[in-house]
Design a protein around this nucleic acid. Structure first.
Lengths: 250, 250
DNA sequence: CGCTGCCTTGATCTTCTTCAAAACGTGTGG
DNA sequence: CCACACGTTTTGAAGAAGATCAAGGCAGCG
């Protein structure tokens, strides 16, 4: 066993370089159809900003006037409830957008956006983004597709919360995260982001204790390996079997 | 007490008249910005069809090639799990769209769409709808807004399932349905759709027994009045207080 | 008028939360 | 480099919420 299971996001202090910006914007699924000259002009309308891990980008209730795009790092969206019972709605990675997509200026966000790791985030005024969409229908259609697929994921999450046990939800969430963030290492398929028991608990709608017990169980079965804020999957099949008879494609 | 609490949807056998079609399409939030000549030409690209209550429009797993719009009646979207454990994801009313919004032809639906009451549904090929969107950016932007607001609702549902008790979820769902479908009658604010305990159970992620007990409780408090497949709300405040300290705006 | 399916109510059992305390890891200051 | 302190994680035991199993009641319909 050598070193930490999580690979450092080796990003310079200067995390928001111009080069990176252009590269990200070109790589965005919804801009990829545009000529690069057009992308460069769009690039000029974006503003970048770096965030420390844990720093808040905006709070639930704030009037949000911008659309944001994750250029590097990870951003989490969460909803709050009484007694600090938060829910982690989504974990966004490079290329994902969030914030105000709609025309309504100053709409209040229902979610808090927080940098989960050190991140670079691009932003553009909601109105400017709308102009781009109006000028480039192909972009609007791509954005629509992405929203549709997000809605699908959200619906699957609703189903999952409705019918699964806590253990099944943890298994499902780990498999989901592995698809999104997994990378092979000596420890197994490591989910490449620092993931505390609390984070996981807020994703599956359970307490940290329940998640801890569940992970312990998974470890005894040798399905996963885990430490402080990291998890690696060693046996996808084992986890998948927990969902047996219940898993559609998603 | 006179008659049934639910008002009949007084729609002729001929539920899909041409008049209705045009009226619906004009009333759609995303077409409202277009000149009526344009709407008439769009109208010609839609096909209508009536469904009996309980009839399936498409099954989960089917390749769906059309976008559908509810012209009259109610349509429910559900996801299935093992052992008949279904989840009622959404209840669509006049003007709501569903089906294949994306470009991908023949994409498999994750949901089953079923007529909850006798319904008239308009449909258009997914490709044709895309053409309309591409030609009319204003329409695309409106559709995008609607999707965004649906995503918001879905996220709120996720939060709710994560932190609320079954009783709170029932209360929340009733208030939500009252906003969407409520109409004042002598019995109170009646939710205008036949709503069985099973339907409610599938909406809140609980068993029919739990829902039944909860409704009984609410009735004893005189917050609601209910019978076979109908519910009326007599005291919004009572229900809302159950959500105390926990309710954001949504 | 009796059948069928929905709704209600009760008793028991499982799952998960809550409360509590100990073990562990990590970073800090001596 | 070690020791201490803090936050996270683990584990245990008790309790509550909800599911399940089971039976009886009621409404609508043939």
């Amino acid at each position: 066993m050598s070193g930490k299971p999580l690979q450092k996001d080796d990003i310079d202090p200067q995390i928001c370089s111009i080069d990176l910006r252009l590269e990200i914007l070109q790589g965005l699924p919804f801009f990829s159809s545009l000529p690069s000259s057009e992308i460069e002009s769009i690039n000029r309308r974006f503003v970048e900003r770096g965030y420390e891990a844990g720093e808040t980008i905006y709070f639930a209730g704030d009037p949000v006037k911008h659309l944001f795009v994750v250029a590097s790092g990870k951003v989490k969206l969460q909803r709050h409830s009484f007694a600090g019972k938060d829910v982690l709605i989504d974990l966004l990675i490079q290329g994902d957008f969030f914030g105000n997509l709609s025309g309504k200026q100053g709409e209040e966000s229902a979610e808090t956006a927080q940098a989960h790791t050190m991140s670079c985030v691009l932003s553009i005024g909601a109105g400017s983004f709308r102009e781009i969409l109006a000028q480039h229908p192909s972009v609007a259609l791509r954005v629509l597709d992405i929203q549709a697929s997000r809605l699908k994921t959200a619906h699957e999450q609703i189903r999952q919360l409705s019918v699964y046990t806590a253990e099944q939800r943890v298994a499902w969430t780990l498999l989901h995260l592995a698809d999104k963030l997994g990378s092979e290492t000596e420890h197994g398929l490591v989910i490449q982001t620092p993931l505390s028991r609390k984070d996981l608990a807020e994703m599956v709608g359970a307490t940290t204790e329940t998640v801890s017990r569940t992970i312990s169980h998974f470890q005894h079965e040798d399905w996963v390996r885990s430490g402080r804020a990291w998890i690696a999957i060693r046996d996808r099949e084992g986890l998948r079997q927990l969902l047996e008879d219940t898993t559609p494609s998603f």
